[in-house]
């Protein structure tokens, strides 16, 4: 069952005195299934936040439709089952984390005891129990991101929408957020998050969508989007200069690194020949690394393709 359904979504902004048109979204369509972690990827200015703002009822689409948990965007009962963390979250800085969670809990209709219990649990989970009563104005960016995650989860939502959730977090914080996202999936929740940190998407997502200049370029499981074909193999080895001259397979393919000499070949057959030559010549093979298309390469490829097709680019 789809928990998020978007069809032909368009958004045009008119800016400045001369009402200059900016097409932020050009017919975006996607569907997110229940229980999956869905990554929404795209370079800066691609339309990720605009799409999420439409889904969260912050802006209205110029055309197209969007349904959240089976109801049109803005439906209060659907909003009750959604948790949202905005990009670079800003909260009421005169409140403490506990007061903020209490306020959001009230909006979700929770009782006082439930608000207290869930606040304590969530603040402990995001590592802010020690700062629960401090005003948010004294929080660092990473701490605000964590309290943002806590407020998104206080209503025990079925769908969690996170706009750049790893932004501003140190490696430990990112790992904790990743763990929370995985835990949410294990509890049957759906997570829709935007990011430009591709390693996070690679580690977490069941499916991704890539948006470039307001258009969806690709949607699907990462395995299906990435080419399984081997793009090259690095052979790291050690041996003398005489042997190095024998195993050179082409100009520029041979280099020295701190790990040893590296030969880059096109496929596994060539790699086998090079390994045989090294061993035969008295050298030692240290490492063999096959290269498949990474999400980063796919992302860059799609972004460049989008740029070429866009006459305004």
């Amino acid at each position: 069952m789809a928990v998020l359904e978007v069809e032909g979504l368009r958004k045009t902004f008119f800016r400045g005195f001369l009402r200059r048109r900016t097409e932020a979204l050009r017919g975006v369509g996607l569907s997110v299934d229940a229980g999956e972690i869905f990554g929404f990827l795209g370079p800066n200015g691609a339309g990720k936040t605009t799409t999420i703002k439409i889904l969260m009822g912050l802006i209205f689409p110029t055309a197209g439709s969007a349904n959240v948990l089976g109801a049109p965007v803005g439906d209060r009962r659907a909003k009750q089952r959604v948790g949202y963390l905005p990009e670079n979250p800003y909260f009421y800085d005169y409140l403490s984390a506990r007061e903020l969670l209490d306020m959001v809990g009230r909006l979700h209709g929770l009782t006082a005891s439930d608000r207290r219990r869930r606040s304590d649990d969530l603040l402990a989970k995001v590592g802010l129990a020690h700062a629960a009563t401090r005003p948010l104005r004294s929080y660092s960016k990473g701490m605000l991101q964590r309290v943002g995650l806590a407020q998104a989860l206080i209503g025990d939502p079925e769908l969690v929408v996170l706009d750049e959730p790893m932004s501003g977090l140190d490696p430990i914080g990112r790992k904790e957020v990743r763990d929370i996202i995985v835990e949410l999936r294990q509890r049957g929740k759906t997570v829709f998050f935007s990011t430009h940190i591709l390693s996070d998407a690679t580690m977490l997502c069941d499916r991704v969508a890539i948006i470039v200049r307001g258009e969806l370029r690709d949607t699907g499981p990462l395995g299906a989007l990435l080419s399984p074909k081997i793009a090259g193999v690095d052979v790291v080895w050690e041996g003398d200069d005489h042997l190095a001259r024998e195993v050179v397979v082409g100009p520029g393919a041979h280099e020295r690194t701190s790990e040893g000499r590296v030969v880059r070949v096109e496929d596994l057959d060539q790699a086998n020949s090079v390994v045989a030559a090294i061993v035969k010549g008295g050298g030692r093979v240290l490492q063999l690394t096959p290269h498949r298309q990474s999400l980063e390469e796919l992302f860059v490829h799609e972004a460049r393709a989008g740029g070429k097709e866009d006459p305004s680019a």
Binding site: L58, K79, P86, Y90, F91, L107
Partner: peptide
Amino acid sequence: DRKTVFFVIPKPLD
């Protein structure tokens, strides 16, 4: 100005 509206409007309230 402080963008707090971005976090409060998506909450379950009209």
